[in-house]
Amino acid sequence: MLHRRIYQFLIIYAIGLGLLLALKYGLNLSDYVIPSPDEIVRTCRTYGGPYLLAVLNTLAVAVLGHILSICLATVVAVIGRLTAWIGSFIRTAAYNIQAYPIVAVAPIIFILLGDGLQSRLLIAAMICYFPLLLSFIGVFSEPIREIEHFYESTGRMTWRLQVKIRAFENIQKLTTVIVGSATMAMVGTIVAEFIAATAGIGYSIRIALYQSDLAKILVALFLIGVGTSLYLVSLEWAGNALQKRLKSL
């Protein structure tokens, strides 16, 4: 699984880089517009180490933000499945909040929380929680009639049991959505760092953009790709392990 993910990423990255270099030599562009292979290698040697640490920093925040968004989506979906007014209100509020572009909301977050970890975490969570929320609301609002009917007719149905039944019956769907939203968590964290932070690879990309240094950005993109692939593989592995365990019960 790990090999496949990394392999696929490397192919995509190589194609992208190849196209850029073809453009550079085809149009006879200077190293300022598109860096030469030499410059990319040199930049990788100089900045590879610090950028790797920055990617790990970003990845750590993305993982925390992802966990936060999963918790948030679960809570909102569990409450949102209610037919009562509060359920409907939460659903509407969740959709409305998501309707605002994060770049417009981010400055308010940074003014309130500063440009530290909290802001990065919150923005990462906000960006990746909506796809989770949509699926979670779908899963938790849809009754599993053949099972729930038994507990309802015997008067043993509680809200916890209802949530457990629905989660168990849709575990594959939930796992897929969680894995899918992992990339959003990474993107969210990078966006947060890009807008206002003093750490992480998004911050490094911002500085590189100030300096019009595409070589640095290419190195950063490579490391982001590898980091994200590793995280996705870990999630897929954890999801498979969980499904196997539940099936064995």
Partner: peptide
Amino acid sequence: DQVLRAAAKGAP
């Protein structure tokens, strides 16, 4: 600074 960075990398 943009001009000098570009010139240093061969921008005409």
